[in-house]
């Protein structure tokens, strides 16, 4: 597909210029490297890493669960920073970044919850444990961020939606803190194990695969946020173009 020329008001972004696609040469290669990385993690995690003495094959879920959890925190942290920057500097760039971070964050938070439940069944004997504070607060965080996306979908003037969403994003950020610290605040009420990574309890191959999974997850998040950002940017450009065309039409009517 040929790239539309900038400066042409009939193209989605021609009026203000800028790329008309969500992809670029860089994101293509980043996406390809991410897919290859996923294949590598799957091969190592399923075929090379030995089963755990206690948890058996269920331990392999950590290669998805832990990077999802850290990725969700990172993406939602991006939303918090973007929310602050929108409220402070009215930065449209940060506002679109906040929205992109929230969508990716909700996806990863959902993945974290699902993989956590799948791991919990063979390990704890139950999909859901109400006594586990980290699990419950992660669900609360997920629901708060679903509310953030609901506010984004409300419609109305772009600035108004951005401000409303930014406040909800900040409330979500407070919840991220609770999620992270809850295991320490209510340590006697969690079934979650302490971090095996920092305790140095992981075997070499498991540790290597987990580190690779972190890198691949970071690449995937980067790829998704960049594409979602560009969709948001193009949506704004399209709205601006529509307003520009409507103004031109009124001027033409008035001049007739």
């Amino acid at each position: 597909m040929s790239r539309p020329a900038t400066g042409d008001p009939t193209t989605p972004t021609g009026y203000l210029g800028g790329p008309a696609r969500t992809g670029s040469r860089f994101t293509f290669w980043l996406g390809a490297a991410t897919l290859a990385g996923f294949a590598g993690v799957a091969a190592l995690g399923l075929l090379v890493v030995p089963a755990d003495d206690v948890q058996g094959d269920a331990v392999r879920i950590i290669f998805v669960h832990v990077p999802s959890a850290l990725g969700a925190y990172a993406a939602l942290g991006l939303t918090a920073v973007g929310s602050v920057m929108w409220l402070w500097r009215r930065s449209q760039w940060w506002d679109i970044t906040a929205h992109a971070g929230a969508e990716v964050g909700v996806l990863l938070c959902g993945l974290m919850l699902v993989t956590g439940m799948l791991w919990g069944r063979p390990t704890w004997g139950t999909y859901w444990e109400w006594g586990d504070v980290r699990l419950v607060t992660a669900l609360i965080l997920f629901l708060v961020m679903v509310g953030y996306l609901s506010v984004r979908a409300l419609g109305g003037p772009a600035g108004s939606v951005s401000t409303r969403a930014a406040v909800v994003g900040l409330v979500g950020a407070v919840n991220i803190g609770i999620v992270n610290r809850s295991v320490n605040w209510w340590a006697n009420r969690t079934l979650h194990q302490q971090s095996s990574l920092t305790d140095g309890k992981l075997e070499d191959m498991t540790l290597l695969t987990l580190i690779l999974a972190f890198v691949v997850a970071a690449m995937a998040i980067w790829w998704m946020v960049m594409h979602r950002f560009r969709i948001g940017w193009l949506e704004r450009q399209l709205a601006d173009r529509d307003i520009h065309q409507a103004v031109q039409a009124r001027r033409a009517e008035a001049g007739r």
Partner: peptide, 8 residues
């Protein structure tokens, strides 16, 4: 939708 999770 916004309030109930926040006040959990």
């Amino acid at each position: 939708i916004l309030l109930l999770p926040v006040v959990a």
